[in-house]
């Protein structure tokens, strides 16, 4: 078995088949299911000349900013700006819905701010947008999420002139 086909096997084993249907049954409308694809936007520049932003659902936020409401029954539909020149010690995580055991020791496993700063420093990435963005993934009203948070955040990303966006849905 080649290394690649072995990995595909591993991936299949990790699929949680049927979970999606179960969640949607218990909390109708909480999960987004799309049947269409959005048109691909074209990269205008090579990565080494592009301004990159990073968007995370990990609940990472600068110390001192209003903590995400992690216990609200329908979720928190706000986002926080994380200055892209922040140090890990400037940041904290407010989110209960994913294991933060790794991130508490090294925040780069979920919010790789130092790695992105290094890639920019060596010129592989042109520049980092002034801010990265973060919110929490616990939002039970999918329609409201699309109408408010998704649009607000996309507007903020666009306003900073980003050419490329990297996302990590926790």
């Amino acid at each position: 078995m080649t290394a690649e086909s072995k990995n595909v096997e591993n991936d299949k084993q990790q699929l949680r088949t049927g979970l999606w249907a179960t969640v949607n049954e218990r909390y109708p409308g909480s999960m987004i299911t799309k049947s269409d694809f959005v048109a691909l936007a074209k990269s205008k520049k090579p990565l080494s000349e592009s301004r990159l932003t990073f968007v995370s659902t990990a609940g990472v936020q600068p110390k001192g900013s209003l903590p995400f409401d992690t216990v609200h029954p329908i979720g928190d539909y706000t986002f926080r700006c994380v200055p892209s020149d922040s140090k890990p010690s400037d940041l904290e995580i407010h989110q209960l819905k994913y294991p933060t055991s790794g991130a508490e020791r090294d925040i780069n496993v979920i919010f790789p701010i130092e790695r992105l700063q290094e890639l920019q420093a060596v010129g592989l990435i042109g520049e980092l947008a002034p801010n990265f963005f973060s919110f929490i993934g616990y939002n039970m009203d999918a329609e409201m999420l699309e109408r408010t948070l998704a649009e607000d955040l996309a507007e903020a990303v666009e306003a900073e002139g980003s050419d490329v966006a990297l996302l990590a849905p926790a």
Binding site: L40, A41, K42, S43, A150, L153, E155, E158, V164, A165
Partner: peptide, 9 residues
């Protein structure tokens, strides 16, 4: 939403 604004993601 971001891709629809013309930014590749």
């Amino acid at each position: 939403a971001i891709e629809k604004r013309g930014i590749p993601t």
